[in-house]
Simulated assay, not measured.
Amino acid sequence: MARLVDITYCVGTTGVSPPFSCASRCKDFPSLDLVRTWNTGVLLSDSCGFIAVDHGTSSSSSSSSSSSSPKPPSKPAIIVAFRGTYSITNTIIDLSTVPQEYVPYPSPDDDGDSTPTTKKCANCTVHMGFLASWRSARELVLPALKTARAKHPGYPVHLVGHSLGGAVAALAALELRQSLGWTDVTVTTFGEPRIGNKHLAHYLDETFSLLSTNNNNHTTSPKETLLYRRVTHANDPVPLLPLSEWGFRAHAGEVYIAKPDLPPAPEDLRLCVGADDPECVGGPEADGWLGWVLGDLVRGEETRKSVEAWTRRLGGFPARLKLWQLFFAHRDYFWRLGLCVPGGDPVDWGRGKYGVLLGGGGGDGEL
């Protein structure tokens, strides 16, 4: 899934062309047929990505791979991939103080080609920039997606996104599940920021059954068959933005990559409990240092602090406040995302094809 969202960075640059060809690693997915790409513009609130249909591969065709390790068979699926942007922090800072009410589409003046929502989102607010990005993509994505689904009615839908694309994928998924009533939707995001307030986070948790409870009404450990996988990475600040001081909260479904460097191993992954597992990206110090870096600076509080106070706080900086490390952490999800160059990221050269299980419903695909 990370490789698929990596390919979205070709859209708007060198391009993705039928049947499924690009300058990056499109050849790793011979069973995919491109449905369409979209690129709504160059502004931070615009959206970019592709829709493709995976017709699946059999065990016999998988074993013929030139890779030293046979590629496992893949199941049919419809893929909707949303591209991210490394300027996401600018978007968050500029717009985070202006949340707006979240109303699941379709709105009352919509075309009516939908199933009414089964559950309203009470007291929910959403980041207006993320919602604007989904609105700009919606009129291009939904018609093509509905056509593909009608042509392949047994194919589950997989949404995948990185960074800003993860936030857009979250809002798209809520519409598909709640407004359209599609139950076979699975989501995987990488470095997804917080999309709204605690009520919206809870609404998403309920929609994708991310939280289970025991008799004491406490959240229990998550299952591996998550319908929504929010993958985070050690030292990546974006999943902690916008700040909780601004009223934003994360939702559950987190899969945490604890190893800072590439490549991670299975033992470096953690299925997190709830939205703020202290052993995951939202650890106890997270909002503290991010609040200092962003919250205090935005509010101008540094002008009221003495040089001595600044010195004390500087002494407590975690290493991940080094900006170049933050950039790498936001980019390095299983491999480097956002490099649409011939043959893919040079670091990947010499590595074999990646086994990808896209089967839906149970969330049993490999990341």
Score class of each variant (00 low, 15 high):
M1D: 13
A2L: 02
Y9E: 03
G12V: 06
A23K: 00
S24H: 06
S31G: 09
L44F: 14
S47D: 07
H55K: 10
G56Y: 00
S58K: 05
S69Y: 13
I78E: 14
I78P: 09
I79Q: 10
I88V: 04
I88M: 14
L95V: 01
Q100N: 10
S107P: 00
P108R: 07
D111V: 09
D111G: 05
T117W: 05
C121W: 07
V126H: 14
G129V: 02
F130N: 08
F130L: 04
A137M: 01
E139W: 01
L140D: 04
L142F: 00
L145E: 12
G154I: 05
L159N: 04
V160D: 00
L171E: 04
D184F: 04
T186N: 15
P193A: 09
H202G: 09
H202F: 04
F208H: 06
S212A: 14
S212Y: 12
N215R: 11
N217Q: 05
R230S: 10
V231N: 05
V238N: 06
H251Q: 15
E254H: 08
I257Q: 14
P264Q: 03
L271K: 11
E279S: 09
G282F: 11
G291N: 15
G295D: 09
G295S: 04
L314Y: 00
G315A: 14
F317E: 09
P318T: 02
L323V: 11
F328W: 06
D345V: 03
D348G: 07
G350A: 07
L358W: 13
G363F: 11
